[in-house]
């Protein structure tokens, strides 16, 4: 992965990190996602917006194959990351998820110490050869997540004892600790108050330097604030996708316009 800060404007980039082609998702008999084609650029923030039940979270979860953990869920079509089809039988979903991290709607720190929460991923993937390296990973992950100053003196306290906003940043730090290339965020601020939300948004903006971020959000202001590109989903269909500025100022589709002007959803 290229650790160098990207000098170009994210919106001007033409390379592709993730490309989805004719993706269909079924829950039992329900056809939840229909014919989604999208290209996601590296080192940028892409926001998925749309009304509840439109399939944006479901589509997000196909990118790291989290839907595999649901019995009745079936995915068709192809999703490529760096040109490699992640639904190829040769791909190990467990390895994939180390490369494509995920942050969930509700902060879900493990009922362990702050240190153990961050060290969880590096430990199972054997990323640290000794305690010192593990300490380094933990402290650098917490620093990147902007949490280090707040917790450096209480790393052995339970992660569940922190405030909601801190818990969510802990979950982001936990995802960073396995050095993924892509981070998926499923409404990461919906359980947080405005101040905690602002901190997380600031963090997302900083993380853009090193990671490809896909974020599902219910708040259109949030999408406008943090993302470079925006995709609007409606009833399982990707209605419109483009630069965030275009989507919010000059939507091509009537449904997009109705949604962002608050006529439904």
């Amino acid at each position: 992965m290229n650790e160098m800060p990207n000098i170009e404007q994210a919106t001007d980039m033409t390379e592709t990190k993730i490309s989805a082609n004719k993706v269909q998702v079924y829950y039992g008999d329900t056809h939840a996602i229909k014919d989604v084609d999208i290209e996601i650029q590296p080192r940028s923030v892409t926001a998925f917006i749309g009304p509840s039940g439109c399939g944006k979270s479901t589509f997000l979860r196909t990118i790291n194959r989290m839907n595999d953990t649901i019995d009745i869920c079936r995915v068709e079509g192809s999703i490529r990351i760096d040109g490699e089809d992640i639904y190829d039988p040769k791909v190990d979903p467990v390895q994939l998820r180390a490369k494509v991290g995920m942050v969930f709607q509700k902060p879900n720190p493990f009922p362990k110490s702050i240190y153990d929460n961050i060290a969880y991923g590096p430990r199972i993937h054997g990323l640290a050869r000794n305690k010192a390296e593990l300490d380094d990973i933990v402290s650098s992950s917490l620093q990147k997540a902007g949490l280090w100053e707040e917790v450096k003196n209480r790393l052995d306290e339970p992660g569940t004892g922190m405030s909601g906003g801190q818990q969510q940043r802990l979950c982001i730090a936990r995802a960073i600790a396995v050095s993924p290339e892509v981070i998926l965020m499923d409404e990461p601020c919906s359980a947080l108050d405005p101040i905690a939300t602002a901190k997380v948004e600031e963090l997302i903006d900083e993380l853009r330097e090193n990671f490809t971020i896909v974020i599902v959000t219910h708040s259109m202001q949030q999408a406008a604030r943090v993302s470079q590109r925006t995709a609007f989903f409606h009833l399982g269909i990707l209605v419109e996708e483009g630069s965030t500025q275009d989507i919010f100022t000059n939507p091509k589709d009537k449904r997009t316009q109705d949604y962002i002007t608050g006529r439904f959803g």
Binding site: T69, V94, L96, R97, V103, G121, H125, V178
Partner: peptide
Amino acid sequence: VPQAMRDGSYGLGATKSE
């Protein structure tokens, strides 16, 4: 045990037994 705990662990690339 809440499903969120499992999701968190799977999301980090852990296997079932881990």
